[in-house]
Design a protein around this nucleic acid. Sequence first.
DNA 1: GCGGGCTGCGCAAACGTTTACGAAACATCC
DNA 2: GGATGTTTCGTAAACGTTTGCGCAGCCCGC
Lengths: 326, 326
Amino acid sequence: MVTIRDVARYAGVSPATVSRVVNGLTGYSKTTQLRVEEAVLALNYEPDSLARGLKTKQSAVMGVLAPLVSDALASEIMGGVESAARSRGYSVMLGRTGLGSEHAAGYLRTLRTYRAAGVILISAAITADMRRALGSGIPLVSVAIRDGLRFPSLSIDDERAAYDGTRYLIGLGHRHIGLLAGDPRSVLVNTVRERGYLRAMAEAGLPAVLEQGNSLYDSAPPALGRLLRRDPLLTAVFALSDEMAAAVVNDLQRLGRRVPEDVSVLGFDNTRTARHVHPALSTIAQPLEKMGELAVERLLAGTDLRPRILPHRLVERGSTTQVPPG
Amino acid sequence: MVTIRDVARYAGVSPATVSRVVNGLTGYSKTTQLRVEEAVLALNYEPDSLARGLKTKQSAVMGVLAPLVSDALASEIMGGVESAARSRGYSVMLGRTGLGSEHAAGYLRTLRTYRAAGVILISAAITADMRRALGSGIPLVSVAIRDGLRFPSLSIDDERAAYDGTRYLIGLGHRHIGLLAGDPRSVLVNTVRERGYLRAMAEAGLPAVLEQGNSLYDSAPPALGRLLRRDPLLTAVFALSDEMAAAVVNDLQRLGRRVPEDVSVLGFDNTRTARHVHPALSTIAQPLEKMGELAVERLLAGTDLRPRILPHRLVERGSTTQVPPG
DNA sequence: GCGGGCTGCGCAAACGTTTACGAAACATCC
DNA sequence: GGATGTTTCGTAAACGTTTGCGCAGCCCGC
């Protein structure tokens, strides 16, 4: 391994000087700069990140934690995180918190031993355990969820988004609209979105019908069954994740109902999966990739505790339409 | 920050002794072990990973690189990698190589400066650049692709899998079977899979019809158009990724053809998306999560260069059926 | 009672950086 | 031409670990 000393020897200067030019500080002449740069190239020197981090008490890594690394929502946000981090010279460490944030605290601990510059938490609740593990050590910004005012967050206005989605369905003439809620463990997003739905229904004087899923595909069919049993006249289903919405579309077709002619389906998030189903999902779009990018910006910018609210957007595709006549 | 010296002082021993018990080495009595452990707990000591890595010239991180972090194939494999790595005490650093492996070399460099224990490369080609950046430094295992014999790899037998898929369609009575190939930049997987298709078609005395996509959703519809123009009698399409297969199913329905009654569609990989479309995709399954787990095992086990071939499996869902009569 | 082998532990050097501090060299101004 | 800056650079001490080496003390067998 070629060290800073080797470069120094080759260039005929001291390690200190090499360090200065490598880090772009001041205090060297143009000619020595050239000599050092030449030496760096000639020897293919790359500064050891561990040594550097040890000395400076900071490393250019940030963590990104999600309940499930393989889910569409999280991985699209991660895409944004990854590219923004990289373009700023940071590397990102991946972690899975589990659906109930069980593993999060452990991750935070290891991140701290690497003196990570911060952590981005995707759509996961912040438990007491985590707060403890966080200590005063390491900044956190939470994405796609808003957890009080104790940590900076980046999300859409989930209440309003769900309200808007419901209004949209009402505007199409629907009167019997069922809500398929998400994982009860993610209380934060879910109760908030539920509130938006409930408010819109109440304002319109319509009865609310609500069942719990867990945000994933398999949870939707049984919940849909319960929904239909509670209100057989349902003409619209609002699912609080695209994956559940996809399952609803498919299961509805299995049951012999046409989408959207017989029943409209509205999703949430606008992940890749929204386009995979046929008819493609109308859905509430969150700017996922951009959220990831902004999250790293936010992390690096410092501690502005005010939650940042991003605009949501209703994207209409084929899965929703006017209420059927009769 | 609490250091090993603090613990030593608290326990009344030397830092060396603390290090020994923390790392489970020998050379201390039972009673001092207890004293040290108590001190560690009392002070909530966590060894600094950077300092440790600097000293030992090894850090407990491994890299995982994929062309796109947000794609379903990669993220399912990453899930496996993440959990296996974590359970062995390793952290994983995420990287995006780009579709043509453009960014891979840079990642390898930074990974080396962190003295990473190894790299797992997901479905990406190994370029000359990468070989250079790899140097003799850091072990690599490649997953879901087999690149000659220079690096350990973990994959299914892609030629055979494509062959089996094609045979399956032939067995259903299809004679006009189009192939929707993947990204030409991933020469390795694709030409190999294409070979399997061509072999099966040739053996059956059937004409091959083949068009290129790029593995992603949007590339499929135009390629499907070309396929149908070349052979209007097509009754089956074999797409070399589930995402393309999903697009084919949807586009076919848009064109007024029923799936599977008019044309059967066979996918590849068995990612989550295979179930999102309706009818759900029949597809060639790769054990994605397990591949991720085995990859970290492999990485840590040492340098066994023989490619490891995992079994593939045909899973039949609703998108394929007997050739339509007439 | 003495030599030799353990066991248990501490000292101190190293790992590859960064960065105070100071010194030399040089320019500047009166 | 001295005093005073300013620029350019090197020396050395740290950052928090791990680990070779050595030194006590001890047990044991003779």
